[in-house]
Write a protein that binds this DNA or RNA. Structure first.
Length: 270
DNA sequence: ATTATATCCTGATCGC
DNA sequence: TGCGATCAGGATATAA
């Protein structure tokens, strides 16, 4: 499922149910995951749940130093789902990989394709990626322009990498480029300052709007309470090959960049 | 140093 | 209806 708005949605939904809960046991149902790696969490209390880049971060208590405990980062990749369940005694079924039994209910990690990852970091600082969050204050038009000037990559490919801006994926990159009127194959360094500023604005607008909608559901994204997102109704190009552009009626085209589909309007985007 | 390809997995969908 | 090929919102290791 998950790009930034979907992960933000899940983290916000889980926070009230998980904060203050104590981990009673961790059950691992997938041989790809080493149960010993999660053992340090047993007995600890959850102090915070928040999105960190494209991951759901869960902060834990440290006896004596409540704010300095370890953080568990869960990357959902393509098919991961997190949900709180009131009953922790249900028999585990198919895509369930890990169940964290809590003093009230349980946190379930389902993941059909098993691409998702669980990583335990000693502190929040260790769990924080080097790149910056596109919804945060550090992301400015000047910052974006300076970065783009250094790269000959197609702008679409550049936006997808996670070492500068953290959290963008295939859907929102296509949508933001369309809104900004920029062709996805343009070399990053060919964008003018005005174009970079337009792209900056489009990215923030799209992300904010998608978070308000609870994310996008295309295949099987479900948020933490099992509901679908609503942003798919607002997609203007993603998955709409052949449909008329909402602005100029030209049929939307699809191209492949790095084995990923990119959707764009050949008239509106230059 | 960038930039392509292969790979991790499973399930839904497409075309014949 | 059945069956193999293809594709899927991610990211990394390896190759070129």
């Amino acid at each position: 499922m998950p790009e930034l708005p979907e992960v933000e949605t899940v983290a916000r939904q889980l926070a009230p149910a998980l904060t203050g809960r104590r981990v009673v046991a961790v059950q691992v149902f997938d041989p790809k995951i080493d149960p010993a790696s999660l053992e340090p969490l047993i007995g600890r209390t959850i102090t915070a749940v928040r999105r960190i880049g494209k991951q759901v971060g869960i902060g834990f208590s440290q006896p004596g130093i409540p704010e300095a405990g370890p953080w568990l980062c869960i990357h959902l990749r393509m098919t991961g789902r997190l949900a709180w369940a009131p009953d922790c005694r249900q028999p585990p079924v198919a895509p369930l990989r890990v169940r964290f039994r809590l003093d009230r209910g349980a946190l379930l990690f389902h993941d059909t394709r098993r691409f998702g990852t669980l990583t335990l970091y000693p502190t929040l600082r260790d769990a924080t990626p080097a790149g910056i969050d596109p919804t945060g204050r550090a992301f400015t038009p000047a910052r974006l322009t300076a970065w783009l000037a250094q790269s000959a990559s197609p702008i679409k490919v550049w936006l997808m990498r996670q070492d500068r801006l953290v959290g963008l994926g295939n859907i929102y990159v296509s949508e933001a480029l369309h809104r900004a009127g920029i062709h996805p194959a343009r070399p990053a360094r060919s964008l003018s300052f005005d174009e970079a500023a337009r792209l900056h604005k489009a990215l923030r607008l799209i992300l904010r709007s998608a978070i308000r909608c609870g994310g996008t559901t295309i295949f099987n994204f479900e948020n933490a309470v099992g509901a679908a997102g609503q942003f798919q109704r607002r997609l203007r190009v993603y998955g709409r090959e052949g449909d008329p552009c909402a602005r100029c009626r030209t049929p939307i085209q699809r191209l492949v960049q790095q084995q990923r589909s990119t959707f764009f309007c050949p008239t509106c985007q230059h």
